[in-house]
Structures are given as C-alpha cells and as structure tokens.
C-alpha cells in the first residue's frame, strides 16, 4: 500500500512496545509494532543504523506497521548497556562497533520470533539503513529463509583489506553467492560510502551470480536521505524511495 492511500473508513491501528526476546543466551530488547486488522501480517526485521536504536527507528517501525507489517527492531547494542541512544551508541563506537556475528545472530533470532508469532503470515523481510543496510544484506546472505531484503545506502558492503576490523572481519560482498532473497537497494549518488563506483561493483557481483535485485540511484541525494531529523533529508527522493520499499515488500511478502 502506497503512502497516504488508506481509506478513511479502514480499520487501521497499531500497537507498539518495547519487549524482549531470546538471542545468544541473552534476552534482547526489541521494539515491536503490531498492526491491527485481524489478518496475519508479513513480518519485517528492522535493523537500526550506527547512531543506535533510536527514536527515528521507532518511527520507522511504526510506519511499516501502519502499512500492515509485523515489525521487530532489535536493539543490537543491547549488550553494551542501557541509557540514552547516543550514550549507548558512543559506548559501542568506543568498543570498535558491534560484531557482525552478534548482529547476524540477533537478526536471525528476530526472524524466528516473527515466524513463531501467530499474527505472522510466515513471510519475512529484512531492512535497514546505513550500517543497518549492510547488516540486513549480511544477515540475508548468511542466514537462509528471508523472502526479501532491503539495503538502504549501506556502506562497507565492499571493504578493502585495510578496512576490515575485528568486529567487521569479512566484506558482505564476499557472501553474494549465498544470497537467496531478492534485494532492493536505494542509494544517493552523492554518497561517499557507498560511492556510485562501489554500487556499480556490487551490482556487477550480483549480476555475475544471477541474483534477483533492483538498485535505484538518486541524483541530488547523499547518505541518509530518509532522515527527516537531519540535514541529509531529501524530500522527493525519500518519498520515492518509500514507494519503492512498499512496492517491493508488497510484491515479495504479501503473496
């Protein structure tokens, strides 16, 4: 369903709350948005960005929920402790970032949480922006069973050896052959990570392996062009991008 195309007499509603779910021997905090309406909803794992499990991502989850998706957004920094989002993100940054394996595990368990929910139709997508876009792609490449993946301007998909770190030891592009979910990618042509040349390289790798994907590249936009709380926001590109996301999820998750 496109943005602002609901009927004024629709039964529309969501519930939203912070809950916990089991992952890796811990209980991970997650923001869960549940659409009302009495039908089994497609599930979406929402992967937050490097600045943390923040209010933008709560609103991101609510938007997806109002469009009919059962959404779980795990706090991937949960093990760093609890405080304001920027304090927790600062601690994660000081530790060199969250480990890719930890993210993949928490997202895989979040997908299982969706499958186990009686309100889910069993089809699962995963989406994230910035580092969350990279992590969404990485998770869908390493864990089978996702029906759609959306990478919003994820940097670090292509990583020269000198950019590999203990927390990010393998470039996600190395897993391209293993990706078994259709991929949607949205990118700004003014972005410096990923650069247009890196998006080209990623596209060539996907084509080489015969993967199903669609990339959309926007002039006049850089990184984070959905972020209405920052100067990176680009209204026209963001609204078109949201339409691409809704159409992609409708095609792959609502069948």
């Amino acid at each position: 369903m496109s943005w602002n195309s609901f009927k004024t007499d629709d039964h529309l509603g969501i519930s939203a709350e912070i809950t916990t779910y089991p992952s890796g021997g811990d209980r991970i905090h997650a923001y869960v948005v549940r659409p009302h309406g009495g039908v089994r909803a497609p599930g979406v794992v929402l992967v937050h960005h490097m600045p943390g499990w923040d209010e933008f991502y709560q609103e991101f989850a609510e938007r997806l929920g109002r469009h009919g998706y059962l959404v779980i957004c795990p706090d991937l920094y949960c093990r760093f402790g609890h405080g304001t989002p920027d304090d927790v993100a600062a601690k994660a940054r000081s530790a060199g970032g969250v480990h890719d394996d930890s993210v993949v595990s928490d997202c895989a368990q979040a997908a299982q949480w969706l499958r186990d929910d009686t309100g889910c139709n069993g089809r699962i997508g995963i989406i994230g922006s910035c580092s969350g876009g990279r992590h969404a792609l990485l998770t869908a490449s390493r864990v089978h069973g996702f029906d759609a993946v959306v990478d919003l301007w994820g940097g670090g998909v292509i990583m020269p050896d000198d950019q590999l770190t203990p927390a990010r030891p393998v470039a996600p592009i190395e897993y391209t052959a293993d990706l078994d979910a259709p991929l949607l990618g949205l990118f700004g042509n003014d972005d410096q990570s990923p650069t247009p040349a890196q998006v080209d390289e990623h596209q060539a790798e996907l084509e080489k392996h015969g993967k199903a994907f669609r990339f959309h590249r926007y002039d006049g936009a850089g990184h984070g062009f959905f972020y209405y709380h920052t100067p990176m926001y680009r209204q026209a590109q963001a609204m078109d991008g949201w339409e691409k996301v809704f159409a992609f999820f409708e095609e792959h998750l609502e069948r």
Partner: peptide, 8 residues
C-alpha cells in the same frame, strides 16, 4: 556515510 572512524 558511516565512516567507522574511532580511536580510544
């Protein structure tokens, strides 16, 4: 972009 630049 996420630079991931951080030193402690």
């Amino acid at each position: 972009m996420c630079t991931m630049i951080a030193v402690s």
